Simulated scan of single mutants.
Amino acid sequence: MAYPLVRHRRLRSTAGLRNLVRETMISVNDFIAPIFVTEGTGIKDEIASMPGVYHWSLDTLEQELSEIVGLGIQSILLFGVPDHKDATGTSAFDDNGIVQRAARKIKALYPELVIVADTCLCQFTDHGHCGVVHTSDCGAEIGNDESLELLAKAAVSQAKAGADIIAPSNMMDGFVTAIRQALDDAGFANTPIMSYAVKYSSAYYGPFREAAHSTPQFGDRKTYQMDPANAREALREAQSDVDEGADFLMVKPGLAYLDIVRMLRDRYSLPIVIYNVSAEYSMVKAAAMQGWIDERAIVLETLTGMKRAGADLIITYHAKDAARWLKENEAN
């Protein structure tokens, strides 16, 4: 009688066997939960395109923090939505800016919670770009080196306020060098940099731009964010950040770029971070609200896939739900 030489199904026949041979595990320790903090009082406003994600004012922020900490999540990614914007994004490096006040409040409430501070100018500029804009008869251009000076000031201000990790997301050339030097000079040599090393000019950012009020007022970001068609370029970008002293390498977005995560994982020993971005979240939420998918199963499978691709850490708007589901799985 003919039969297979190898029966792979033997190790899949029961839940116990599947648990024994499972290769990739996700944990609440893998998650970084994004938070949007805004000016004002009494604010808990749901972001229309991101169900379950809110704008929080400083006086309501503890509600969100207590839930995050209670679920065992140990890190947040902090975004600020200011009430003042100008051409150079001065509120980004104002020691009394929204991010800085939020960081101080978070540290006062939960000193062990790891604050990752997003370091960019786009939320703080009146034009919505990630750097200083120069205009001429030829059009508008984002000035690289002038922008670095402002980003370095923002990083130092965030570190002074209590940020544990600086996460520059601007994609200016040389941003790790500029920020590392500024942090070192200001006495923050031990503050790590989580570089948005490989950040693509992606259609997946739409809901985030609503949340952060950061839509460019003209043009796009294709001259500084990466072309989605390019992979080898990602290695060049990552290598520059490694050489300049980055402590983490991030790939953003996530789902359409798992091949890039694997490329970085195979080449570098630094921790690899993946950003499960806003549209990836919103599409799942929208389909779940229609009853078209099993949200819990889809989310946990997606996060497992990101970990399997090589990510050590996952920034995700699903963090609270995923942490809750993992606890329920453990209880069962």
Rank of each mutant, 00 (worst) to 15 (best):
V6L: 08
V6K: 08
R9E: 14
S13G: 14
T14V: 13
R22Q: 15
E23A: 15
N29I: 03
I32P: 00
A33V: 11
G42Y: 02
I43H: 09
K44H: 10
D45M: 06
A48T: 11
H55N: 08
T60F: 05
Q63E: 15
S66A: 12
E67I: 02
G70Y: 00
I73K: 06
S75W: 06
L78C: 11
L78S: 06
F79H: 07
G89T: 04
G89V: 05
I98T: 01
I98Y: 01
A102H: 01
A108K: 08
Y110F: 14
Y110N: 07
E112K: 06
V116K: 05
A117H: 02
C122H: 06
G128N: 11
C130R: 07
D137P: 09
D145N: 14
A154W: 00
A154L: 03
S157I: 08
I165M: 05
M172I: 12
A178K: 03
L183I: 02
A186D: 01
G187M: 10
A189Q: 12
I193A: 13
K199S: 09
A203T: 10
Y205R: 06
A211Q: 10
A211H: 10
H213Y: 12
F218P: 08
G219L: 09
G219K: 01
M226Q: 02
D227K: 00
P228L: 03
Q239I: 05
G245W: 04
A246R: 02
D247S: 08
L249Q: 00
L249H: 00
L249S: 01
V251F: 02
G254Y: 03
G254M: 11
V261Q: 09
L264N: 00
L270M: 04
I272P: 02
I274G: 13
N276F: 12
S278F: 03
S278T: 03
Y281G: 01
S282G: 07
V284F: 09
K285S: 12
A286M: 14
A288M: 07
Q290G: 13
W292A: 10
I293T: 05
R296E: 15
I298F: 13
G310P: 05
L313F: 06
T316D: 01
H318V: 06
A322N: 02
A323T: 01
W325I: 05
L326N: 00
L326S: 01
A331E: 15
